[in-house]
Amino acid sequence: MTTTTDRRHLVGASLGLAIGLVALVTGALVLREHGPGNMWAGYLAGASLALLAAGVAFWRTWRRPAQATTAERAFTASADERDRAILHRAAATLGGVALPLTGAAAVLLALGVEPAPVIGTLLWTELVVFVAAFAVANRKL
């Protein structure tokens, strides 16, 4: 039997994935016209993977809620209070680290270092910090 909560989850998931798909195609088209080199292809690959992961997470939290992970629940609007606490801790850690990292990146750019690797390293470092903080909080809580 499909409940109101199920339907709401399905509508939310479909809407989120549709918005993600529009952002994916629009971003790739804009980058292909105006971006440097083959950045659009990298964007397309990365964003497609992220969208696919989101689709799998939505499907698992909808059809297999008992087997869904904390991360899957946290990123598909089906989190309970512990999931949200973990997400908040990870976001707070990222926020605390992002400020000095961005400051360091700004100093490097001011010193004339090539921007692309600086920005790339900054983004990857922030991603790693967030994932690590999420994993640690998930073990602790």
Binding site: A66, D80, E81, A85, L141
Partner: peptide, 26 residues
């Protein structure tokens, strides 16, 4: 744990964390 989690509207992991004292519920 799964049955209690279902009754409370939280995940099984949340019930486990509360039972083991790692997470204090709201």
């Amino acid at each position: 744990q799964a049955a209690l989690a279902d009754a409370l509207g939280v995940s099984r992991q949340t019930v486990n964390s509360i039972e083991t004292g790692r997470y204090d519920p709201s």
